[in-house]
Design a protein around this nucleic acid. Structure first.
Length: 476
RNA sequence: GGCGCUAUCGUCUAGGGGCCUAGGACACAGCCCUCUCAAGGCUGGAACACGGGUUCGAAUCCCGUUAGCGCUACCA
């Protein structure tokens, strides 16, 4: 049975790229009946925080990504990592390096000045073990470097096919800091071996780490896992997705009222395709269709418009009743009290015109509490265009609607009454109705006016219309 | 600079030598519907980076070129 892991470092929020990596791991585990391990890579003590860990856990949970083991913390495995280094040292596959940070930095600067790449010069490579032991006993600080073998370091990547590096292009990199704590590549390999990880599914930014990790696997005499490097997610300018592209944290989308299922569907299709034309794929289909081979080898641009479209698809497919809790929560945030009214009809009325729960809740709020402040630009433009007629239409509407008894306050009779009145006055139906829409919603966009009136309710609608008619009445 | 990865409409992609005058989706434009806007339906514009091979035949295979991206720490 495959064992996969998602291994974020808690140094920031759960990024959409990380979320997608987690999703692919999860999909693969669920598809194959394997095990998903969650490991928090907190070896960078300076930048790791518990708050970030919690945000990552929350983000995964929101997306519906579950894990079977963990969360495990890499920091807890210090002794295991050190034991691995000792084993490498004993086998002569690693050695102590006494070069100081300052020496290394000046070498790096010199290399940069000459526009040539920096590579560790191997100065400490040939220091005999007993001499190294003596110097360390004398209090000299040392890191541990792996002895990088010559020859090929290649693997058959599950998404890219064969990828090959040459050992002599890599240098003897540090695996243990002078303070005795492990460096990322060592810790990862050590943990992946200990956790019996069979498939390492991670971002493309790790492909250049892979040959280094393979060198460690070999030096440790351990079996290498299958590697699958999934492509990066880019911003609209083709550059690596970052803060300046707008929302990149999973939590941002949660706040915007995106459905977890829509986000998951969208993320899955970013860099992966089941083949064919299917787009809207529920969880079960995603799992059933998923394969590592279906993962794209080129990076993908994150397209918010398509995410919102997809969310709209999920929104229309979700019955109003299921939307109720989320809408109620948003209404609370907007400070609008439903006053015990049944929200479902309101939700159904505006559902098709919303792409996110947030937009939907805002529309419901307007129908409940009336628009806030002045109408929008198009509403004002209409008022100007109609001039005095705007108020006339309103007054006529008020008169007709008032004459409609409460028990006849239905979409059909309202439309009939309004149509007849407009006809009698020789007004175009559109001109007669649009002012009502503007007063009731603050804009020129809504469900049909007769339905809008039903949703707002007789008393509230009449009250708002009367007031607006009076306000817009020409002086004299 | 070195090493590596990648290359189909603006974007996500289908495509595994002939089914391709390259299909779908988002976005865009137009039309239908219509009291507005959506939704929905229909229509349209829009791509195989370039150059060489291989082959009867190449978006598909090979080699270059170009471009983009990633990595190049006692970060992860």
């Amino acid at each position: 049975m495959p064992r996969v892991r998602f291994a974020p470092s808690p140094t920031g929020y759960l990024h959409v790229g990380g979320a997608r990596t987690a999703l692919f791991n999860w999909l693969y585990a669920r598809k194959t009946g394997g095990t998903m391990v969650l490991r928090i890579e907190d070896t960078d003590r300076e930048r790791s925080t518990d708050a970030h860990t919690q945000v990552i856990l929350d983000g995964l949970t929101w997306l519906g990504i579950t894990w079977d083991e963990g969360p495990l913390f890499q920091g807890a495995n210090l002794e295991q990592h050190q034991a691995g280094v000792r084993k490498l040292l004993d086998a002569g596959r690693a050695y102590h390096c006494f070069c100081t940070r300052e020496e290394l930095e000046s070498q790096r600067a010199a290399a940069a000045a000459q526009k040539t790449g920096f590579r560790y010069n191997g100065r400490c490579r040939s220091i005999p073990a007993d001499e190294a032991a003596r110097r360390r006993a004398a209090g000299e600080e040392a890191t541990v470097r792996i002895r990088m073998p010559d020859g090929e370091l290649a693997w058959d990547d599950a998404v890219h096919g064969r990828i090959s590096f040459q050992g002599h292009d890599l240098d003897d990199f540090v695996i243990l800091r002078s303070d005795g704590t492990p460096i990322y590549n060592l810790a990862v390999v050590s943990d992946d071996i200990a956790m019996r990880i069979t498939h390492v599914i991670r971002g493309d930014d790790h492909v250049s780490n892979t040959p280094k990790q393979i060198a460690i696997y070999r030096a440790l005499g351990a079996q290498e896992p299958v590697f699958a490097h999934v492509p990066m997610i880019l911003g609209s300018d083709g550059k690596k997705l970052s803060k300046r592209h707008g929302a990149t944290a999973v939590g941002d989308y949660q706040d915007q009222g995106i459905f977890p299922a829509a986000m998951r569907n969208f993320l899955a299709l970013l860099g992966w395709s089941p083949g064919g034309d299917r787009e809207i794929l529920p969880e079960a289909e995603l799992i059933d269709l998923f394969s590592l081979e279906g993962i794209q080898s080129k990076p993908a641009v994150f397209d918010t418009a398509k995410l919102e479209w997809m969310n709209g698809q999920y929104l229309s497919a979700t019955p109003a009743g299921e939307l109720l809790p989320a809408v109620t929560r948003q209404l609370g945030r907007l400070g609008v009290d439903a006053g015990g009214r049944a929200l479902e009809p309101l939700i159904d009325g505006v559902k098709a015109r919303s792409r996110t729960i947030l937009q939907l809740a805002e529309q419901v709020a307007v129908r409940l509490a009336g628009p806030k402040g002045e109408p929008d630009a198009r509403g004002i433009a209409l008022r100007k265009k109609l001039g005095p007629a705007f108020a006339e239409h309103l007054r006529r509407a008020v008169a007709v609607l008032e004459s409609l008894p409460a028990d006849e306050w239905g979409a059909e009779s309202i439309l009939a009454a309004l149509t007849a009145s407009a006809e009698f006055a020789g007004a175009k139906l559109g001109d007669a109705l649009q002012p009502i829409r503007v007063v009731l919603t603050g804009g020129t966009v809504s469900e049909p006016v007769n339905e809008l009136l039903v949703l707002v309710g007789r008393e509230a609608a009449l009250e708002r219309l009367r007031r607006a008619a009076a306000e817009t009445e020409p002086v004299g």
